[in-house]
Amino acid sequence: MRLTFRGPVLLRGGGCELGRLLALALREEGAQTCSDCRSEEGRAACAADGLTVLPPAEDAAPEALPERCRAVCGAYPAHFVDLRHSRLETLLAGAAPDELEAWAAGDVAERARALRAVTRAMLRTRFGRCVFVSSAATERPAPGQTLYSAAKAAGEALFRGVGIELAGKGITACAARLPWLELGRGRVFLERRGEAARRAMPAGRLPDPSEIVRALCWLTSAEAAVVNAATIPLDGGLSSRKAGA
């Protein structure tokens, strides 16, 4: 089944390993992709993979995202995947006040601003498909993941809200909760706790990143518009299994 993409796919936080794999898979499906990376390292990694990247901009505010995408791709984003997240993992009571302010600004407010800007651009053509990459930890965080899970929960709520508010205008959205993956910062965790993680999975193994990427590809496409205002577990059954069973 060939998937449909009605315009550029903008990947926010697209410099991470998962973002790059997803962009490459989307391109194989015929999509025009555009990766937005916070760091020079992310931009370089995308460039090394041959991916189109938003160049650094003087105005890097979330509100400028659609225009920056248009400057590179010739059109406003029609599809949007948000993978960005900060690295902050700490006990809530151990976080410094200024860390909490930065967390709220970066992991919650900026996401809302980016989603607002992108969906306003999508309103012009009355089509848009938005996907938020969330985590199985949203519902069941480990100690130290309180802020991470709270921000993911906020992201899920934002994307669900867009799906409720704008579906009548052709803009749909969903979130996908991923399990541990042998990619990026997940790889670091799995080096220490890989066996326990595999035992927690009903299949006794972690999903291959390519399995997750295929599912995300479909969720990003126009064909998945019926999956709207919903949070989908793409976790191999991890979140459905009784702990320790």
Partner: peptide, 13 residues
């Protein structure tokens, strides 16, 4: 309200 939002976006554009 969503129609007003769309009107605003269109006027802006």
């Amino acid at each position: 309200s969503v129609d007003l939002l769309e009107i605003a976006v269109r006027l802006n554009a």
